[in-house]
Design a protein around this nucleic acid. Sequence first.
DNA 1: TATGAATGAGATTTCATTCAT
DNA 2: CATGAATGAAATCTCATTCAT
Lengths: 190, 190, 190, 190
Amino acid sequence: MKPRDENKINEIYKATLNLVKASGLAGITMQMVAKEAGIATGTLYIYFKNKEALINALFDVCIRSSASTFFSNYDPAQPFKIGFHTIWLNIVHRRVTHFNESIFIEQCFHSPFIDEESKVRLRKIFEPLLHLIERGKKEHLIKDIDTTWLLSLMVGAINEIAKRTMYYHIKLTSEILEANFQLCWDGIKA
Amino acid sequence: MKPRDENKINEIYKATLNLVKASGLAGITMQMVAKEAGIATGTLYIYFKNKEALINALFDVCIRSSASTFFSNYDPAQPFKIGFHTIWLNIVHRRVTHFNESIFIEQCFHSPFIDEESKVRLRKIFEPLLHLIERGKKEHLIKDIDTTWLLSLMVGAINEIAKRTMYYHIKLTSEILEANFQLCWDGIKA
Amino acid sequence: MKPRDENKINEIYKATLNLVKASGLAGITMQMVAKEAGIATGTLYIYFKNKEALINALFDVCIRSSASTFFSNYDPAQPFKIGFHTIWLNIVHRRVTHFNESIFIEQCFHSPFIDEESKVRLRKIFEPLLHLIERGKKEHLIKDIDTTWLLSLMVGAINEIAKRTMYYHIKLTSEILEANFQLCWDGIKA
Amino acid sequence: MKPRDENKINEIYKATLNLVKASGLAGITMQMVAKEAGIATGTLYIYFKNKEALINALFDVCIRSSASTFFSNYDPAQPFKIGFHTIWLNIVHRRVTHFNESIFIEQCFHSPFIDEESKVRLRKIFEPLLHLIERGKKEHLIKDIDTTWLLSLMVGAINEIAKRTMYYHIKLTSEILEANFQLCWDGIKA
DNA sequence: TATGAATGAGATTTCATTCAT
DNA sequence: CATGAATGAAATCTCATTCAT
């Protein structure tokens, strides 16, 4: 008996992300995914019931692993700005090193595959950041406006930074990173 | 192959945008577009050579009409901040009132339909803004860092503002708008 | 506009019946049906949502048209034996002239396509015959045993007569028919 | 390619018959058969070259074991009616206790799996009954019409009796059996 | 020009069969 | 022998495009 290769699932995920980056959700077929993953088309269906299941499972994995990196090294006990800086850097780093994933999530958000529930789950992963921002407001370190707009500035800018970094093949030095963080910080600080 | 009935073409565009918002580029078929536009499938092909041509033409139209609104009421002769504020507001307004269009452009960017040339054209529409920002840097009004990052903050935040506004059905009052502008301005100002 | 060809549905039905007779429900594919009907595979799906829908619709049609012929020229006002003879002949005639149909119904009965409801509907078409037999029992013309067994003899024998007629290419003369009716009649008569 | 484990082969046969009864020849897959038989898919191919071989082998087994039961306790030396009654009962009994088998044979008869030769073999198993009926005709005990029609009445009715018994979950008492035999006998007797 | 039925290539999915363990 | 994952050919089904009306 050949044991069910758990690693194969990762190959499939990787293949899907690559292909979606290259030509969007609209541009992938199960054959392409299989070929890119180095397996037969039928094998795909051993691991995923159908295309929708594959996309959904991958979406879930992306959310989960994103979430875990966003808050790595983040300690709520630290001063606000330290924590905020850590998370800011983590998200930028994730977006850039997993650019595929970012594109995939963005594409999924307007697709026939992802249900409302998954979208809600995506929003939930930012909750610790939300709490941190609330704290920052309480400590009068950042502006007292609705958190959603503070997040808009932060997350929106990060997404755009990642895109430009990737599209224009920019090397993100720590100077650039810090300059960008400064932009964000100056925007939100009280 | 592209006759007069300009009105019908607009119906087709509108239908496409609606459907792409609802289920993404991956989720639309020519039949769906025709039905949504209230015409027969065959009629679609009187106005557009094929699906790719429709998507590309619409992409072009979106870019063009976006561009025209982005800089309406903008007068390069005015003081920097006035001009910047005008454009900022214009873009936010466009993104929110033409949310469909934003989603469509975003989806197209990673799709098998849009060629490199069109992507370049999309970037070009921001050129007047680019020049303005360069001017702002010269006038020492805004930070002296690479323009791309200043744009990241502005454009990224605006995109996110629009999404949150639409997803959470927020009514954008002028207070909210000004607060958001302030965030952006504080971020980029020298 | 090309109007939806109602006749095409009949071609599809005919093709399906022919193929099922030749190689059973297990032996048909949608491609085969399309080819036999002289249309493209995709066209099949204009008229029927999927394979199951085609089989079910055809099953229904078979039941309905069978039922209508079984009782043609049957007048409940006539003497029992006349009526019984009419129906007997009608069923034999139908089974032989529409042998495809008989095979199809038989195959469908044990298939993944037909639901319980349709099976019940099939049984219902014999109801007028059931009533006639009840009457025969009341008139003491036929044996007073459960109607189901009287029907078994009649219907079972007819099915077998049709099969043998078709398999052995027998020409059913009126002598043969009457001899067979006599067998049945002698069996059930009081 | 057909080793000893006779017991496993029987499990496979049993599984196939059960599944065919439940959803017809059109509804079974090798995976389903394996699962139902409690073995792995690959194991199926140790015992049978392929699907066709399995179906054919089972068809053969069904024919053989049917044949052996049809004439058990039948002694050609006995009076005609005794012999006929014995065989009639045997067939009814077999059809009811091995209903799966009956369905399977019926389904196979119109399928891409069974060749003409096997069909002939199926017909051959009734030969002793055929001879008995010829004898009955010579002894002027039954009607002098073509044997095929006398068989039609007998076999057709039996098939139908079995179906109704199984579909309606009827308990076949000896009264019911004898009543049914009487129907058949009255039909064919001279 | 407008229609929508028809087409058939191609996408999704299934499944008989093979094969590595 | 036994397993069940892997395969890929073939089945089901979809959809961009054409065409008869």
